[in-house]
Simulated assay, not measured.
Amino acid sequence: MNKILQAIALTLMLLPAFSLSGCYARTGETATSNQQSETTLSEAGLRLVPLSIQTSDAVHDFVVEVAETSAQQARGLMFRTEIPSDKGMIFPFPEDRVASFWMKNTVIPLDIIFIRRDGTIESVAANTTPYSLDSVRSNEPVATVLEIAAGRAAELGIGPGDTVTWR
């Protein structure tokens, strides 16, 4: 199974990424070729970026993988057996939409955080059920979804109205 995962990761790295200009560069800036050459990649071949969540009383820092292409977004965190407490995966969308996720082939429970275009959290689906085919949806159109380890949102006091920023 490990060789299969490595082959899938290699395939995902070779897929051309579509442009998401402005979706993950919150300030509207785009990366220069110098910045792109210094990009750090995860073991799965996804770009790693710092992400912060501002709650009413603290800032919580994460390093997240960016699922930029439709193939990367379809795979998400499937088949992963763990996710460190300071890690996650972000799914930026080119246009706002009602986001719908399921947990098919997702081994670990997750907190799924739905984020508006202005960076505010719309809602949190806490402790999702591994392998479930039930749809986990945002309540309104969102620009981005963040997945973190189950229970972290409650542990850190992360909820609707808090602000997410990333590069």
Rank of each mutant, 00 (worst) to 15 (best):
Q54K: 14
T30V: 10
A67T: 02
S100A: 14
I112K: 01
C23Y: 09
Q6G: 04
S19E: 10
I108E: 00
L14D: 10
S21G: 11
R152F: 09
Y24P: 01
E29M: 11
S33F: 03
T27P: 10
S42M: 09
T144F: 03
N2A: 11
Q6C: 06
E38L: 14
T39P: 08
T128I: 04
R137I: 14
L77C: 09
E82D: 11
T120F: 07
Q35T: 14
F62Y: 08
E68R: 06
T106K: 00
S33N: 12
P94K: 15
A149N: 07
S100N: 12
Q36D: 12
L110I: 10
T120P: 15
T120M: 06
Y24R: 01
T27N: 14
F79G: 13
A125T: 01
R80V: 08
T163P: 00
D111L: 05
S100R: 11
S56Q: 15
G28Q: 08
Q35C: 06
T165E: 10
N105V: 00
D96I: 14
K104E: 06
P141W: 15
E147W: 03
W166N: 13
M103W: 00
T81R: 09
L12K: 03
P50G: 04
T129I: 15
M78I: 10
D61S: 07
T32P: 08
L10E: 12
P50N: 07
Q35S: 07
E140Q: 14
G45D: 14
T69I: 08
S135H: 07
A143P: 07
A17Q: 12
V136Y: 09
V98C: 03
L110N: 07
I4N: 03
N105T: 00
M13V: 06
S100I: 13
T128V: 04
S135C: 09
L133R: 09
T30M: 13
A58T: 11
S135L: 08
M78T: 14
S56K: 15
S21P: 04
A154L: 12
P94E: 15
I90C: 05
P84Y: 10
T129E: 10
R167Q: 13
I108N: 00
D134H: 05
G151H: 04
I121S: 07
L15T: 15
V63Y: 07
L20F: 03
A149V: 03
S138F: 04
Q6I: 06
T40W: 01
E68K: 06
T144H: 04
A67S: 05
S42D: 11
T106L: 00
L15Q: 14
V59E: 13
P92T: 15
I112P: 02
N34W: 15
F114P: 00
R117H: 12
Q54H: 11
T55V: 04
P109V: 00
I158C: 12
N105A: 00
G76L: 00
F93I: 07
K104A: 07
T144G: 04
L46C: 14
T32S: 15
V107D: 01
A99H: 02
F101H: 08
A126G: 13
F93C: 13
T129R: 12
D96L: 07
S52Y: 10
